[in-house]
Amino acid sequence: MDEKSGTLKEKKVVFVTVGTTCFDALVRAVDTPEVKNERIHKYSNSNGSWIIHSHQDLLEFLEIMCKFAGGFGKLLFACRYFPFQQSMDSSHNQTVENGPAVLEYFTFSSSIADYLKEASLVISHAGSGSIFETLRLGKPLIVVVNEDLMDNNQSELAEELAERKHLFCARPQTSYETIADMDTGSLITYQLGDAEPVAKLISRYLEFPDDKLTYVK
């Protein structure tokens, strides 16, 4: 990826996915015409959490997030509800030119695999589906843990994988620090798991002969 970064600088894509459950912590947007027009310029408020009022703010926020990558060309946003939908056109796939960056979003897609493939950096919610889909493709990943969900078990997985240096784990309040300090070179490639041990244990428990397993493979 490093040798590509010089030539493909403009085409770098940051893919942001916020999952199927509402996740306003990453984009805690205030979707009223007043604030949208007002363009409150900072993304951080007094208690340090990210507040994004316009898509300019969103771009600025993500530009900082992606600083390490030497800038990005396109920003893809996958979410169920896009807060700046009304400020853009009403068609489904949106492209907004904003200086050096292009912002695109979609509100529904059955599979994010194709989008992940083009991304140079993925910013994701803590759902195991998108975490492993990203890790499988070997893309650098920042997980922003959603603190709104009732029992916040999802942080367990992100924290454990961050401890094992497969990804970066951020909280909405501390995401700035996490992103400022991170070094993608320190990430260790994730080794895919294997379901064979479970399958063998189940077969053994049910006393099915083991032999078939070996020659099916």
């Binding site: 199927t20 759902g127 195991s128 589906g129 492993f132 798991g193 294997d194 379901a195 064979e196 479970v198 399958a199 189940i202 077969s203 049910l206 099915f208 078939k212 397993l213 099916v216």
Partner: peptide, 19 residues
Amino acid sequence: SGGHTAEMLNLLYVLQTEK
């Protein structure tokens, strides 16, 4: 759902489904 289904399918792919 989502991640749970993905994990279950990973298991099914290596299970002796004919049994």
